[in-house]
Design a protein around this nucleic acid. Structure first.
Length: 415
RNA sequence: GUGGCCAUAGUUCAGUUGGUUAGAACGCCAGGUUGUGGCCCUGGAGGCCGUGGGUUCAAGUCCCACUGGUCACCCCA
Protein backbone atom coordinates (compact mmCIF):
# COMPACT_ATOMS: atom_id res chain seq x y z
CA UNK A 1 0.00 0.00 0.00
CA UNK A 2 1.50 3.27 -1.10
CA UNK A 3 -0.41 5.84 0.84
CA UNK A 4 -1.70 5.72 4.37
CA UNK A 5 -3.24 8.36 6.57
CA UNK A 6 -0.55 10.24 8.48
CA UNK A 7 0.34 8.67 11.82
CA UNK A 8 -2.14 9.73 14.45
CA UNK A 9 -4.82 10.71 11.94
CA UNK A 10 -7.89 8.67 11.17
CA UNK A 11 -10.57 8.43 8.54
CA UNK A 12 -14.05 8.67 9.90
CA UNK A 13 -15.69 6.17 7.61
CA UNK A 14 -19.20 6.17 6.12
CA UNK A 15 -20.17 3.49 8.62
CA UNK A 16 -19.26 5.85 11.47
CA UNK A 17 -20.37 9.26 10.25
CA UNK A 18 -24.02 8.76 11.12
CA UNK A 19 -23.07 8.32 14.73
CA UNK A 20 -20.79 11.35 14.62
CA UNK A 21 -23.48 13.49 13.06
CA UNK A 22 -26.07 12.42 15.60
CA UNK A 23 -23.74 13.17 18.48
CA UNK A 24 -22.75 16.51 17.00
CA UNK A 25 -26.39 17.39 16.60
CA UNK A 26 -27.12 16.68 20.25
CA UNK A 27 -24.09 18.70 21.31
CA UNK A 28 -25.19 21.65 19.19
CA UNK A 29 -28.70 21.37 20.54
CA UNK A 30 -27.50 21.61 24.13
CA UNK A 31 -25.33 24.61 23.28
CA UNK A 32 -28.31 26.28 21.66
CA UNK A 33 -30.49 25.62 24.69
CA UNK A 34 -27.96 27.53 26.77
CA UNK A 35 -27.94 30.20 24.05
CA UNK A 36 -24.36 29.73 22.91
CA UNK A 37 -23.78 30.55 19.24
CA UNK A 38 -21.30 28.78 17.05
CA UNK A 39 -18.06 30.45 16.07
CA UNK A 40 -15.85 29.05 13.33
CA UNK A 41 -12.27 30.19 13.33
CA UNK A 42 -9.46 29.15 10.96
CA UNK A 43 -7.65 25.95 11.83
CA UNK A 44 -4.30 27.70 11.61
CA UNK A 45 -3.12 30.88 13.22
CA UNK A 46 0.11 32.70 13.68
CA UNK A 47 2.39 30.70 15.95
CA UNK A 48 2.80 33.59 18.36
CA UNK A 49 -0.89 33.50 19.28
CA UNK A 50 -0.62 30.03 20.75
CA UNK A 51 2.76 30.60 22.32
CA UNK A 52 1.43 33.68 24.07
CA UNK A 53 -1.90 32.25 25.24
CA UNK A 54 -1.15 28.63 26.07
CA UNK A 55 2.24 29.41 27.56
CA UNK A 56 5.77 29.10 26.22
CA UNK A 57 6.70 26.57 28.87
CA UNK A 58 3.84 24.15 28.35
CA UNK A 59 4.45 20.85 26.60
CA UNK A 60 1.87 21.78 24.00
CA UNK A 61 3.80 24.80 22.84
CA UNK A 62 7.20 23.40 23.62
CA UNK A 63 7.02 20.15 21.72
CA UNK A 64 3.63 19.29 20.33
CA UNK A 65 2.59 21.95 17.86
CA UNK A 66 2.49 21.53 14.11
CA UNK A 67 4.40 24.66 13.26
CA UNK A 68 5.73 25.54 9.84
CA UNK A 69 6.69 28.46 7.69
CA UNK A 70 4.33 29.36 4.90
CA UNK A 71 5.69 30.47 1.54
CA UNK A 72 6.12 34.01 2.66
CA UNK A 73 8.18 32.94 5.63
CA UNK A 74 5.56 33.55 8.32
CA UNK A 75 5.43 31.03 11.13
CA UNK A 76 1.98 29.49 11.32
CA UNK A 77 0.62 26.70 13.52
CA UNK A 78 -2.23 24.23 13.23
CA UNK A 79 -4.42 25.00 16.22
CA UNK A 80 -3.71 22.71 19.18
CA UNK A 81 -6.82 23.93 21.02
CA UNK A 82 -9.71 26.27 20.49
CA UNK A 83 -9.68 28.98 23.12
CA UNK A 84 -6.77 31.00 21.77
CA UNK A 85 -8.40 31.39 18.36
CA UNK A 86 -11.76 32.29 19.84
CA UNK A 87 -10.22 34.97 22.04
CA UNK A 88 -8.21 36.32 19.14
CA UNK A 89 -11.42 36.58 17.13
CA UNK A 90 -13.25 38.14 20.07
CA UNK A 91 -10.64 40.88 20.24
CA UNK A 92 -10.16 41.34 16.50
CA UNK A 93 -13.88 41.64 15.79
CA UNK A 94 -14.67 43.69 18.90
CA UNK A 95 -17.33 41.17 19.85
CA UNK A 96 -17.40 42.52 23.38
CA UNK A 97 -18.45 45.98 22.16
CA UNK A 98 -21.81 44.79 20.85
CA UNK A 99 -22.84 43.10 24.07
CA UNK A 100 -21.36 42.71 27.53
CA UNK A 101 -21.39 38.92 27.58
CA UNK A 102 -20.45 36.86 24.54
CA UNK A 103 -21.33 33.16 24.63
CA UNK A 104 -19.91 31.03 21.82
CA UNK A 105 -19.16 27.39 21.08
CA UNK A 106 -16.99 25.59 18.58
CA UNK A 107 -16.59 22.11 17.21
CA UNK A 108 -13.76 20.96 15.01
CA UNK A 109 -10.35 19.43 14.49
CA UNK A 110 -7.29 20.22 16.63
CA UNK A 111 -3.70 19.14 16.10
CA UNK A 112 -0.97 18.04 18.49
CA UNK A 113 2.04 15.98 17.55
CA UNK A 114 2.03 13.51 20.42
CA UNK A 115 2.59 9.78 20.36
CA UNK A 116 -0.83 8.31 19.49
CA UNK A 117 -2.53 5.94 21.90
CA UNK A 118 -6.03 5.02 23.02
CA UNK A 119 -8.03 8.24 23.13
CA UNK A 120 -5.20 10.34 21.76
CA UNK A 121 -4.72 11.27 18.13
CA UNK A 122 -2.64 13.88 16.36
CA UNK A 123 -5.65 15.24 14.58
CA UNK A 124 -8.53 15.01 16.99
CA UNK A 125 -11.80 16.81 17.47
CA UNK A 126 -12.87 19.05 20.26
CA UNK A 127 -16.03 20.89 21.09
CA UNK A 128 -16.08 23.62 23.65
CA UNK A 129 -17.65 26.84 24.80
CA UNK A 130 -16.44 30.21 26.02
CA UNK A 131 -18.43 32.80 27.98
CA UNK A 132 -16.52 36.05 27.76
CA UNK A 133 -17.32 39.21 29.68
CA UNK A 134 -18.56 37.92 33.01
CA UNK A 135 -16.60 37.57 36.22
CA UNK A 136 -19.45 35.92 38.13
CA UNK A 137 -19.50 32.48 39.68
CA UNK A 138 -22.85 31.99 37.97
CA UNK A 139 -21.00 31.94 34.69
CA UNK A 140 -18.49 29.34 35.88
CA UNK A 141 -21.36 27.21 37.09
CA UNK A 142 -23.19 27.58 33.78
CA UNK A 143 -20.16 26.45 31.81
CA UNK A 144 -19.74 23.40 34.03
CA UNK A 145 -23.45 22.63 33.94
CA UNK A 146 -23.42 22.99 30.17
CA UNK A 147 -20.67 20.43 29.80
CA UNK A 148 -22.38 18.07 32.20
CA UNK A 149 -25.70 18.46 30.41
CA UNK A 150 -24.14 17.32 27.15
CA UNK A 151 -22.98 14.06 28.72
CA UNK A 152 -26.30 13.62 30.44
CA UNK A 153 -28.17 14.04 27.17
CA UNK A 154 -25.91 11.49 25.52
CA UNK A 155 -26.60 8.97 28.23
CA UNK A 156 -23.07 8.96 29.64
CA UNK A 157 -23.14 7.91 33.26
CA UNK A 158 -19.73 6.75 34.45
CA UNK A 159 -18.09 10.12 34.78
CA UNK A 160 -16.74 12.21 37.63
CA UNK A 161 -16.56 15.96 37.95
CA UNK A 162 -13.56 17.33 39.81
CA UNK A 163 -13.18 21.00 40.56
CA UNK A 164 -10.57 23.19 42.12
CA UNK A 165 -9.59 26.81 42.35
CA UNK A 166 -6.14 27.74 41.18
CA UNK A 167 -6.34 31.26 42.60
CA UNK A 168 -5.65 34.54 40.86
CA UNK A 169 -2.64 36.72 40.11
CA UNK A 170 -2.60 37.87 43.70
CA UNK A 171 -2.91 34.71 45.80
CA UNK A 172 -1.45 32.14 43.46
CA UNK A 173 2.12 33.50 43.38
CA UNK A 174 2.07 33.65 47.15
CA UNK A 175 0.98 30.03 47.40
CA UNK A 176 3.46 28.95 44.74
CA UNK A 177 6.34 30.26 46.83
CA UNK A 178 5.16 28.38 49.88
CA UNK A 179 4.74 25.21 47.87
CA UNK A 180 8.07 25.64 46.13
CA UNK A 181 9.83 25.95 49.44
CA UNK A 182 8.19 22.76 50.67
CA UNK A 183 9.04 20.91 47.47
CA UNK A 184 12.67 21.91 47.64
CA UNK A 185 12.95 20.14 50.98
CA UNK A 186 12.06 16.84 49.35
CA UNK A 187 13.30 17.57 45.88
CA UNK A 188 15.97 14.85 45.79
CA UNK A 189 13.35 12.17 46.43
CA UNK A 190 10.97 13.32 43.70
CA UNK A 191 10.85 11.93 40.17
CA UNK A 192 13.08 13.74 37.67
CA UNK A 193 10.04 15.13 35.90
CA UNK A 194 8.71 16.61 39.10
CA UNK A 195 12.11 18.04 40.05
CA UNK A 196 12.16 20.00 36.83
CA UNK A 197 8.76 21.43 37.60
CA UNK A 198 9.59 22.83 41.01
CA UNK A 199 10.88 26.04 39.53
CA UNK A 200 8.74 26.29 36.43
CA UNK A 201 5.35 25.16 37.63
CA UNK A 202 5.36 23.74 41.15
CA UNK A 203 1.62 23.09 41.19
CA UNK A 204 2.05 20.48 38.48
CA UNK A 205 4.13 18.41 40.90
CA UNK A 206 1.03 17.84 43.00
CA UNK A 207 -0.71 16.56 39.88
CA UNK A 208 2.01 13.98 39.19
CA UNK A 209 0.85 10.46 38.41
CA UNK A 210 4.04 9.01 39.90
CA UNK A 211 3.03 7.04 42.97
CA UNK A 212 6.14 7.93 44.92
CA UNK A 213 5.57 11.60 44.17
CA UNK A 214 2.00 11.29 45.33
CA UNK A 215 3.09 9.76 48.61
CA UNK A 216 5.78 12.36 49.17
CA UNK A 217 3.47 15.29 48.47
CA UNK A 218 0.41 13.92 50.23
CA UNK A 219 0.73 16.22 53.21
CA UNK A 220 1.80 19.39 51.37
CA UNK A 221 -0.35 22.52 51.54
CA UNK A 222 -3.03 22.92 48.88
CA UNK A 223 -3.98 26.14 47.17
CA UNK A 224 -7.58 25.95 48.34
CA UNK A 225 -6.28 26.78 51.80
CA UNK A 226 -4.34 29.82 50.57
CA UNK A 227 -6.93 31.53 48.40
CA UNK A 228 -7.55 35.20 49.05
CA UNK A 229 -11.01 36.25 50.05
CA UNK A 230 -12.24 37.00 46.56
CA UNK A 231 -11.13 33.67 45.15
CA UNK A 232 -12.42 31.79 48.16
CA UNK A 233 -15.83 33.44 47.95
CA UNK A 234 -15.99 32.84 44.23
CA UNK A 235 -15.11 29.18 44.66
CA UNK A 236 -17.68 28.81 47.41
CA UNK A 237 -20.36 30.28 45.16
CA UNK A 238 -19.50 27.94 42.30
CA UNK A 239 -19.76 24.96 44.61
CA UNK A 240 -23.09 26.01 46.06
CA UNK A 241 -24.54 26.63 42.61
CA UNK A 242 -23.44 23.20 41.40
CA UNK A 243 -25.08 21.71 44.46
CA UNK A 244 -28.23 23.70 43.75
CA UNK A 245 -28.22 22.37 40.19
CA UNK A 246 -27.98 18.84 41.52
CA UNK A 247 -24.60 18.25 39.92
CA UNK A 248 -22.35 15.99 42.01
CA UNK A 249 -18.68 16.94 42.19
CA UNK A 250 -15.59 16.45 44.27
CA UNK A 251 -13.07 19.10 45.16
CA UNK A 252 -9.62 17.99 44.08
CA UNK A 253 -7.08 20.35 45.55
CA UNK A 254 -4.36 18.90 43.34
CA UNK A 255 -6.16 19.49 40.06
CA UNK A 256 -4.19 21.77 37.76
CA UNK A 257 -4.86 22.60 34.15
CA UNK A 258 -2.13 22.08 31.61
CA UNK A 259 -2.54 25.47 30.01
CA UNK A 260 -1.13 28.51 31.72
CA UNK A 261 -4.01 30.90 31.28
CA UNK A 262 -6.36 29.55 33.92
CA UNK A 263 -7.37 31.46 37.05
CA UNK A 264 -9.79 30.67 39.86
CA UNK A 265 -12.08 27.82 38.81
CA UNK A 266 -10.55 24.78 37.16
CA UNK A 267 -12.48 21.60 36.44
CA UNK A 268 -12.16 18.28 34.75
CA UNK A 269 -14.61 15.58 33.78
CA UNK A 270 -13.14 12.08 33.66
CA UNK A 271 -14.64 8.76 32.71
CA UNK A 272 -13.90 5.32 34.11
CA UNK A 273 -14.79 3.81 30.74
CA UNK A 274 -11.70 5.17 29.05
CA UNK A 275 -8.10 3.97 29.14
CA UNK A 276 -5.30 5.97 30.61
CA UNK A 277 -6.44 9.04 28.67
CA UNK A 278 -9.52 9.40 30.80
CA UNK A 279 -10.26 13.13 30.62
CA UNK A 280 -13.46 13.78 28.73
CA UNK A 281 -13.48 17.52 29.23
CA UNK A 282 -11.58 20.20 31.03
CA UNK A 283 -11.89 23.89 31.51
CA UNK A 284 -12.06 26.80 33.85
CA UNK A 285 -11.82 30.50 34.22
CA UNK A 286 -9.16 32.57 32.49
CA UNK A 287 -9.55 36.20 33.46
CA UNK A 288 -6.15 37.31 32.26
CA UNK A 289 -6.07 35.93 28.74
CA UNK A 290 -7.91 38.59 26.76
CA UNK A 291 -5.66 41.29 28.14
CA UNK A 292 -2.63 39.09 27.61
CA UNK A 293 -3.57 38.90 23.93
CA UNK A 294 -3.85 42.65 23.63
CA UNK A 295 -7.53 43.19 24.34
CA UNK A 296 -9.22 45.00 27.17
CA UNK A 297 -9.06 43.18 30.46
CA UNK A 298 -12.05 40.86 30.16
CA UNK A 299 -12.98 37.93 32.39
CA UNK A 300 -13.86 34.66 30.68
CA UNK A 301 -14.70 31.03 31.38
CA UNK A 302 -14.78 28.04 29.10
CA UNK A 303 -14.27 24.36 28.57
CA UNK A 304 -13.07 21.99 25.89
CA UNK A 305 -14.01 18.37 25.37
CA UNK A 306 -12.67 15.56 23.22
CA UNK A 307 -14.93 14.05 20.59
CA UNK A 308 -12.99 10.82 20.00
CA UNK A 309 -12.99 9.93 23.68
CA UNK A 310 -16.69 10.58 23.81
CA UNK A 311 -17.24 8.46 20.72
CA UNK A 312 -15.23 5.62 22.26
CA UNK A 313 -17.66 5.47 25.16
CA UNK A 314 -20.75 5.86 23.01
CA UNK A 315 -19.63 3.15 20.64
CA UNK A 316 -19.12 0.80 23.57
CA UNK A 317 -22.58 1.64 24.84
CA UNK A 318 -24.09 1.00 21.43
CA UNK A 319 -25.34 4.55 20.97
CA UNK A 320 -27.80 4.40 18.10
CA UNK A 321 -27.54 7.21 15.58
CA UNK A 322 -30.65 8.72 14.11
CA UNK A 323 -31.96 6.82 11.15
CA UNK A 324 -30.30 7.60 7.84
CA UNK A 325 -31.43 4.67 5.74
CA UNK A 326 -33.31 5.09 2.47
CA UNK A 327 -37.08 4.99 2.58
CA UNK A 328 -37.60 3.19 -0.69
CA UNK A 329 -35.60 0.96 -2.98
CA UNK A 330 -36.94 0.96 -6.52
CA UNK A 331 -36.21 -2.43 -8.03
CA UNK A 332 -36.72 -2.82 -11.76
CA UNK A 333 -37.60 -6.21 -13.17
CA UNK A 334 -36.68 -5.56 -16.76
CA UNK A 335 -35.18 -3.02 -19.12
CA UNK A 336 -38.52 -1.44 -19.94
CA UNK A 337 -38.89 -0.25 -16.35
CA UNK A 338 -35.37 1.02 -15.83
CA UNK A 339 -35.90 4.50 -17.20
CA UNK A 340 -39.18 4.82 -15.36
CA UNK A 341 -37.41 3.81 -12.17
CA UNK A 342 -34.60 6.31 -12.60
CA UNK A 343 -37.01 9.14 -13.36
CA UNK A 344 -39.27 8.22 -10.48
CA UNK A 345 -36.29 8.11 -8.11
CA UNK A 346 -35.35 11.64 -9.10
CA UNK A 347 -38.91 12.83 -8.73
CA UNK A 348 -39.42 11.32 -5.29
CA UNK A 349 -36.07 12.68 -4.08
CA UNK A 350 -37.17 16.16 -5.07
CA UNK A 351 -40.28 15.58 -2.98
CA UNK A 352 -38.04 14.93 0.01
CA UNK A 353 -37.84 11.14 0.15
CA UNK A 354 -34.67 9.10 0.47
CA UNK A 355 -34.63 6.83 -2.55
CA UNK A 356 -32.17 4.23 -3.72
CA UNK A 357 -32.08 2.52 -7.10
CA UNK A 358 -29.61 0.10 -8.63
CA UNK A 359 -26.92 1.66 -10.82
CA UNK A 360 -25.12 -1.55 -11.69
CA UNK A 361 -27.83 -3.10 -13.89
CA UNK A 362 -28.01 -6.01 -11.54
CA UNK A 363 -30.52 -8.84 -11.49
CA UNK A 364 -33.79 -8.38 -9.66
CA UNK A 365 -32.63 -10.77 -6.99
CA UNK A 366 -29.47 -8.74 -6.48
CA UNK A 367 -31.48 -5.56 -6.27
CA UNK A 368 -33.65 -7.05 -3.54
CA UNK A 369 -30.59 -8.21 -1.68
CA UNK A 370 -29.18 -4.73 -1.93
CA UNK A 371 -32.42 -3.27 -0.58
CA UNK A 372 -32.16 -5.62 2.34
CA UNK A 373 -28.53 -4.77 2.96
CA UNK A 374 -29.35 -1.06 2.92
CA UNK A 375 -32.20 -1.71 5.32
CA UNK A 376 -34.58 0.40 3.30
CA UNK A 377 -38.05 0.58 4.77
CA UNK A 378 -39.79 -0.25 1.51
CA UNK A 379 -38.99 -1.81 -1.81
CA UNK A 380 -41.10 -1.73 -4.92
CA UNK A 381 -40.73 -4.06 -7.90
CA UNK A 382 -41.68 -2.64 -11.24
CA UNK A 383 -41.57 -4.28 -14.66
CA UNK A 384 -43.48 -4.04 -17.93
CA UNK A 385 -46.63 -5.56 -16.41
CA UNK A 386 -46.71 -3.03 -13.59
CA UNK A 387 -46.07 -0.16 -15.96
CA UNK A 388 -48.95 -1.32 -18.12
CA UNK A 389 -51.29 -1.64 -15.12
CA UNK A 390 -50.03 1.45 -13.36
CA UNK A 391 -49.85 -0.60 -10.16
CA UNK A 392 -47.12 -2.49 -8.34
CA UNK A 393 -46.39 -4.30 -5.09
CA UNK A 394 -44.88 -2.14 -2.37
CA UNK A 395 -43.09 -4.33 0.13
CA UNK A 396 -42.47 -3.39 3.73
CA UNK A 397 -39.12 -5.06 4.25
CA UNK A 398 -39.14 -5.22 8.01
CA UNK A 399 -42.77 -6.23 8.43
CA UNK A 400 -42.58 -8.69 5.52
CA UNK A 401 -45.86 -7.42 4.16
CA UNK A 402 -46.80 -6.03 0.78
CA UNK A 403 -49.66 -4.12 -0.75
CA UNK A 404 -50.64 -3.06 -4.21
CA UNK A 405 -50.18 0.65 -4.80
CA UNK A 406 -50.78 3.00 -7.68
CA UNK A 407 -47.55 4.13 -9.33
CA UNK A 408 -48.91 7.65 -9.62
CA UNK A 409 -49.44 8.06 -5.92
CA UNK A 410 -46.38 6.25 -4.63
CA UNK A 411 -45.38 9.14 -2.40
CA UNK A 412 -48.56 8.78 -0.35
CA UNK A 413 -47.38 5.42 0.92
CA UNK A 414 -43.87 6.43 1.88
CA UNK A 415 -44.28 7.61 5.43
C1' G B 1 10.83 11.41 22.98
C1' U B 2 11.08 6.23 25.97
C1' G B 3 9.21 1.25 26.64
C1' G B 4 5.88 -3.41 26.19
C1' C B 5 2.99 -6.21 22.76
C1' C B 6 1.50 -7.24 17.76
C1' A B 7 1.81 -7.76 12.01
C1' U B 8 -1.44 -14.38 7.74
C1' A B 9 -7.78 -13.24 2.56
C1' G B 10 -12.10 -7.20 2.67
C1' U B 11 -12.75 -8.26 8.37
C1' U B 12 -11.83 -11.31 12.89
C1' C B 13 -8.57 -15.04 13.51
C1' A B 14 -6.33 -20.54 13.15
C1' G B 15 -1.87 -22.40 11.25
C1' U B 16 0.84 -28.37 15.22
C1' U B 17 8.45 -29.82 17.51
C1' G B 18 10.50 -25.25 10.85
C1' G B 19 8.54 -30.09 6.15
C1' U B 20 4.42 -30.89 0.00
C1' U B 21 -0.76 -27.00 -3.63
C1' A B 22 -1.61 -21.54 3.50
C1' G B 23 -7.12 -22.65 6.22
C1' A B 24 -11.96 -21.23 8.93
C1' A B 25 -15.82 -17.94 10.02
C1' C B 26 -18.12 -13.62 8.53
C1' G B 27 -18.29 -10.44 4.28
C1' C B 28 -18.28 -10.15 -1.23
C1' C B 29 -19.92 -12.32 -6.24
C1' A B 30 -22.98 -16.02 -8.99
C1' G B 31 -26.58 -19.82 -8.91
C1' G B 32 -30.68 -22.83 -6.35
C1' U B 33 -38.56 -23.59 -11.56
C1' U B 34 -34.93 -17.82 -16.74
C1' G B 35 -39.77 -11.36 -12.22
C1' U B 36 -38.58 -10.83 -5.73
C1' G B 37 -34.71 -9.61 0.17
C1' G B 38 -33.54 -11.62 5.33
C1' C B 39 -32.87 -18.20 6.69
C1' C B 40 -30.83 -22.43 4.16
C1' C B 41 -27.91 -25.06 0.20
C1' U B 42 -24.12 -25.14 -3.89
C1' G B 43 -20.22 -22.89 -6.35
C1' G B 44 -16.66 -18.82 -7.07
C1' A B 45 -13.33 -14.70 -6.59
C1' G B 46 -9.89 -12.95 -3.15
C1' G B 47 -3.29 -13.87 0.38
C1' C B 48 4.71 -12.22 -2.94
C1' C B 49 1.93 -14.76 5.38
C1' G B 50 4.12 -6.01 6.55
C1' U B 51 9.32 -5.02 4.00
C1' G B 52 14.49 -6.37 3.72
C1' G B 53 18.35 -9.36 5.33
C1' G B 54 20.13 -13.89 7.90
C1' U B 55 20.13 -19.28 9.81
C1' U B 56 18.66 -24.01 7.28
C1' C B 57 18.38 -29.17 2.54
C1' A B 58 13.70 -26.53 3.79
C1' A B 59 10.97 -20.40 6.97
C1' G B 60 4.12 -18.03 7.62
C1' U B 61 6.82 -20.66 11.65
C1' C B 62 13.68 -19.27 14.23
C1' C B 63 17.19 -14.59 14.48
C1' C B 64 18.21 -9.29 13.18
C1' A B 65 16.90 -4.61 11.14
C1' C B 66 13.26 -1.47 9.23
C1' U B 67 8.18 0.03 8.59
C1' G B 68 3.36 0.10 10.41
C1' G B 69 -0.24 -0.71 14.25
C1' U B 70 -1.45 -0.85 19.32
C1' C B 71 -1.08 0.03 24.56
C1' A B 72 1.52 2.47 28.45
C1' C B 73 4.94 6.40 30.23
C1' C B 74 4.79 11.52 29.27
C1' C B 75 1.09 15.04 28.22
C1' C B 76 -3.85 16.25 27.80
C1' A B 77 -9.61 16.76 25.56
Amino acid sequence: MNYRAIKGTKDILPSETSRWQSVEQIIRDVFHRFNYKEIRTPIFESTALFARSIGELTDIVGKEMYTFQDRSGDSVTLRPEGTASVMRSYIQNNLGEAQPLVKVYYLGPMFRQERPQAGRLRQFHQFGAEATGSPTAETDAEIIALAIEIYRRLGITNYALKINSVGDEECRPRYKEILRAELKKISDKLSPESQKRIDQNPMRVLDSKDERDQGLTAHLPLIVDYLNEECATHFQKVKSLLTAYGIPFTVDGRLVRGLDYYTKTAFEITSTELGSQDALAGGGRYDLLVKELGGKSTPSVGFAAGMERLMMILEKKGFAPSDNTPTLFIAVADESAREWGLKTAMHLRSKGFKIEIDLLQRSLKSQMKEADRQQTKFAIVVGSTELANGKALLKDLSKHTQQEVSLDSLHQFLQ
